[in-house]
């Protein structure tokens, strides 16, 4: 069972929900796809960390063969090549690794070499396996890291994988939800929160993923997020009340369910609800 946790914007409580859900399961894998600002590892403080590099392919020029025809420059939509003083230059950070320059070169003057753009750390915070993707500062696209993070995941029915998605609804978010069986959308009870919720709501609808909403930081007062869910017939999985203690634990990067029984019960209940939803979806799907 693979569950993606997302929110239209950071700060809604995505990592809070993801980290605590992963921690109440008997055994689970937590994958931090928020590669620009991965925070889950601050909570888990994983041990026995292994590190692997993530690299992309970029062109390498053989200057003896290049005759300066500039076809590669004209082809490259990303402007990652330039021809200066009779020499072809590659601007590595701009390259999308499409391989087009290599294809169009009539002189076979281009080869491909690996270039690191980030890393993946895998560690243990018993009973959770923690995988974190890091994008190097200054790199623009983390999609290759997300792809590698999610590649080769085990998919047995009783294994639990929690995917902490990047905020927003851009292509990196899509990459992180493609493989998920279920999506949890975390929203704040403000008009900003509703606007941001609507963005991810559109996204999960587009991908036809079953989903439900967790409303975080609920106050006694009027709740626009709740209203939005009711109007759109969206299942509300849980309401987490605004709670200074929970907020403090979270801001100190403590895992709330490991600190207090009350929170463990609440997140266990949420996990059960989600598991039921997933089984229900699977049953509904097989009947179709």
């Amino acid at each position: 069972m693979k569950i993606a946790v997302l929110s239209g914007k950071g700060g809604a409580g995505k990592t809070l929900v993801a980290v605590n859900l992963a921690s109440v399961a008997k055994k689970s894998t937590y994958i931090d796809c928020d590669i620009e600002e991965p925070n889950g590892h601050l909570f888990f403080k994983p041990q026995a960390v292994r590190e692997e590099e993530v690299a992309v392919l970029i062109p390498q020029v053989n200057h003896d063969l290049c005759d300066g025809c500039r076809r590669c420059i004209d082809f490259c939509r990303y402007n990652a090549l330039a021809y200066i003083k009779e020499r072809l230059i590659v601007l590595a950070e701009l390259c999308h690794s499409c391989g087009g320059c290599n294809l169009v070169c009539p002189q076979n003057a281009l080869a491909e070499i690996e270039r690191p753009i980030g890393k993946i750390q895998t560690g243990i915070s018993d009973p959770v396996t923690v995988k974190t993707g890091f994008l190097n500062i200054g790199e623009a696209s983390g999609v290759p890291i997300i792809k590698q993070l999610l590649a080769g995941l085990e998919t047995t029915a009783d294994s639990l994988t929690i995917i902490d998605s990047p905020p927003g609804s851009a292509c990196n978010v899509m990459e992180s939800v493609k493989e998920a069986d279920y999506c949890i959308l975390v929203a704040e009870p403000t008009i900003f929160g509703v606007h941001n919720l609507n963005l991810v709501y559109e996204l999960v609808k587009l991908f036809n993923k079953p989903f439900g909403v967790v409303i975080n930081k609920c106050l006694e007062t009027e709740n626009p997020a709740e209203k939005f869910c009711v109007e759109n017939n969206i299942n509300i999985l849980a309401r987490i009340p605004f709670d200074r203690e929970l907020g403090l634990l979270n801001s100190n990067a403590e895992i709330a369910v490991r600190k207090k029984e009350e929170y463990r019960e609440k997140f266990s209940a949420l996990l059960n609800t989600v598991a039921k939803e997933v089984r229900h979806e699977a049953a509904a799907y097989s009947q179709r």
């Binding site: 950070e93 999308h96 200054g138 623009a140 696209s141 983390g142 999609v143 851009a170 990196n172």
Partner: peptide
Amino acid sequence: HAGFHEHGDN
């Protein structure tokens, strides 16, 4: 100033 990568993807 540092590279102004107006790249795609994000």
